[in-house]
């Protein structure tokens, strides 16, 4: 039976953006959606989503055993960790997260951060995300040096917020990196950050949006709907919303008690070693339905599940 025609053309499209350059053996291109998820053929939906695996600059303090054990002995060695994340676990990118700079988590300095950056650059060929500690003062002091150390590599540098964007934007501009603009589950604030950053001469086409992320059971649906609304605005022609989107799935998921609790702590929830990674993977897959382009992840088993899911739709790469 013939079906009525559905008017499926949108006036806007999401920017395509290529991460990686310089000594990178690979680049990763994200974005490009011309329609909603499954609103057309694969090509119209843009590039396939990619997975960035987290590497911390200093050994994680509070990771549950299920997560830490998956990495064996490399957690104190960011270079070995990054290599494992790419060679064994198949990360499309590595996200180097500088937790150790935070005054509450080690208060490490610029020398440390630069040294770690150089080591990780040398260890892997995939493009990098370099993500600050979240402490404005410390990040403003240190991240420009990290950016310089990665000059030429065209990394994705994060994050700039409504209240703290000048120093990182200037650095990213000088070193020709890409930037992550952050907003707290709020479309208007997201727009505002994008305007502030582009007013400094930084091209919108080099920005990725980050709306903070809620994990499954802890606000996932807020991130989901905000991202869906932003994507619809982008397709409707709003240039300020036409940016690829990143979610921080790994960190958020492993804070949930459903991910962390062992089977003896929560017998009614079954095997903890299986449940934790699946909590992370399910969060990622659910968020992908809102049109997300990059997911930051932690557990290799979770990465494998999401990889299999992505391949089942887009074909293996």
């Amino acid at each position: 039976m013939p079906l009525p025609a559905i008017q499926e053309s949108y006036s806007g499209r999401v920017n395509e953006l290529t991460i990686g350059g310089g000594a990178r053996k690979k680049t990763v291109t994200v974005g490009g959606a011309k329609t909603i998820p499954y609103g057309g053929d694969r090509a119209a939906t843009g590039r396939r989503p990619v997975i960035a695996i987290d590497v911390l600059d200093s050994p994680p303090q509070d990771w549950p055993a299920v997560l830490a054990d998956a990495y064996g002995g490399v957690l104190a060695d960011p270079a070995a960790w990054a290599k494992k994340a790419v060679d064994e676990f198949g990360g499309d990118l590595v996200c180097l997260k500088f937790d150790g700079l935070h005054p509450d988590k080690g208060n490490l300095g610029a020398d440390h951060a630069v040294a770690v950056t150089q080591k990780v650059i040398g260890a892997v060929g995939v493009p990098l995300i370099l993500w600050g500690s979240g402490n404005d003062e410390k990040d403003n002091a240190v991240m420009p040096k990290v950016s310089q150390a990665a000059k030429g590599e065209r990394v994705l540098l994060g994050t700039v917020t409504q209240d703290n964007y000048k120093s990182l934007t200037a650095t990213a501009l000088a070193d020709q990196h890409l930037l992550i603009a952050q907003a707290p589950l709020d479309i208007n604030i997201a727009k505002q950050v994008n305007i502030l950053v582009s007013d400094m001469g930084f091209p919108l086409e080099s920005l990725v949006m980050f709306q903070t992320t809620g994990t499954l059971g802890y606000g996932m649906e807020y991130a989901y709907s905000i991202q869906e609304r932003e994507r619809l605005a982008a397709l409707g022609g709003d240039r300020l919303m036409a940016l690829p989107v990143i979610c921080d799935v790994g960190y958020e998921s492993w804070r949930a008690k459903e991910a962390k609790a062992s089977a003896s702590e929560a017998p009614q929830w079954g095997d903890g070693a299986k449940r934790g990674p699946l909590w992370e993977a399910t969060t990622a897959v659910a968020l992908l339905q809102s049109g997300v382009d990059i997911v930051r992840m932690r557990h290799p088993a979770a990465v494998a599940i999401v990889r299999e899911y992505i391949n089942s739709l887009w074909g293996s790469d």
Partner: peptide
């Protein structure tokens, strides 16, 4: 029918079907 598999799945349903 593994609880470790169904708990996340049923939570997705709960989240997606919550009145925004």
């Amino acid at each position: 029918i593994e609880p470790w598999a169904l708990l996340p799945l049923l939570t997705v349903r709960q989240n997606i079907y919550t009145d925004p």
